[in-house]
């Protein structure tokens, strides 16, 4: 077994699905000869041809519209946003068109949207955002956010095979930092299933994406004092409430960590759901560690202040534990 990076895992997943199923094709800006802004699709045009690896004009709305149209003709398009920030110019197609078609007239829209996401890479306000919460509010979309190469590969394959529009939030910070040995087997990670990234008894950290390794680091700093359980949500919509509630019933304390800003983030909903479903099991308030409510600042010092890091998460854990 060879060790591969998170970004290689995405490439492998895409390649395997394209080899397996002729209806899978890719479209996005600069993904063809150039191989994509992050080189996820490097070499794809040579292997699969220009008709299945389509360099599009700069037109996010049309990229999604085209994907929807093709999906309605039983193709399985995978659209790439160069940066997930740019999804806003194609917003309507996702939230009003793709998301609602099955509910409205019963046709499946099996499309995948790749969303290179997140900060920590000094990209500034328009190349660093976490945009998942914009779509979390939209019934009909599925949202996944892998934190490691295994999930990255298993989830991109599951997303492509899903009959629904799936937004796949791949974190840029993890691209070349997360490495793992993966077997060459054809495996999927089920959408809707979270994962216990670290078992613990004292307190549950609910997190996803880039904050999984960050939270694990915080948990290991506190190891001698507090036995932290870290849940990697993996699937944001649908949420694995069984896993989440099960963990809360065990530890009785929940800290939600996300890189997205705090107000109106996934954490707000998680907090409400836990209160609704497990109030009697709580031995403390549900708290959140998230980015501050500002645009993503550019200068490293500002971005450092803006985002959660292991120290901030550890402090959040300690405070909640002390409560």
């Amino acid at each position: 077994m060879a060790e591969i990076t998170y970004i290689q895992a995405i490439s492998e997943g895409l390649r395997e699905e394209m080899q397996r199923d002729e209806s899978v094709f890719l479209l996005g800006e600069d993904i063809g000869n150039y191989g994509g802004a992050f080189k996820v699709t490097k070499g794809f045009v040579e292997e699969f041809g220009e008709e299945r690896v389509i360099d599009t004009p700069l037109a996010e709305s049309a990229i999604f519209g085209m994907s929807i149209g093709a999906a309605l003709q039983d193709m399985r398009p995978v659209a790439e946003m160069q940066f997930s920030d740019f999804v806003s110019t194609g917003f309507n197609q996702l939230v009003n068109n793709a998301a609602k078609i099955h509910y409205r007239w019963g046709a499946a829209v099996p499309m995948t949207v790749r969303m290179p996401t997140g900060g920590g890479v000094h990209g500034g306000p328009f190349h660093s955002q976490n945009t998942e919460a914009w779509f979390f509010h939209v019934p009909g979309l599925k949202l996944v956010a892998p934190s490691n190469p295994y999930d990255a590969k298993g989830l991109i394959k599951a997303a492509i095979r899903d009959k629904n529009p799936v937004l796949y939030f791949e974190h840029k910070y993890l691209y070349r930092r997360e490495k793992q040995e993966l077997s060459g087997d054809d495996f999927l990670v089920e959408i809707g299933k979270g994962r216990v990234a670290r078992e613990g008894e004292d307190l549950t950290v609910l997190t996803y994406g880039s904050m999984v390794p960050t939270s694990l680091e915080a948990a290991s700093h506190l190891e001698s004092r507090i036995d932290v359980e870290v849940i990697d949500l993996r699937s944001l919509m649908p949420l694995d409430m069984e896993l989440i509630i099960g963990s809360i019933k065990k530890t009785n304390k929940a800290l939600i960590v996300h890189e997205d800003i705090k107000t109106g983030g996934i954490g707000a909903e998680l907090s409400a759901r836990i209160t609704e479903e497990a109030f009697e099991w709580l031995d403390g308030p549900i708290r959140r560690v998230a980015s501050i409510d500002t645009p993503v600042p550019f200068a490293p010092s500002l971005e450092e202040y803006f985002m959660p890091n292991p120290d901030k998460i550890a402090a959040g854990i300690q405070q909640l534990w002390d409560y």
Binding site: K262, P285, R287, R288, I292, D293, T294, K312, G316, Q319
Partner: peptide
């Protein structure tokens, strides 16, 4: 205006 992360929340 901007609640910080990791802040001490006063009960």
């Amino acid at each position: 205006t901007a609640p910080a992360n990791g802040e001490q929340i006063e009960t």
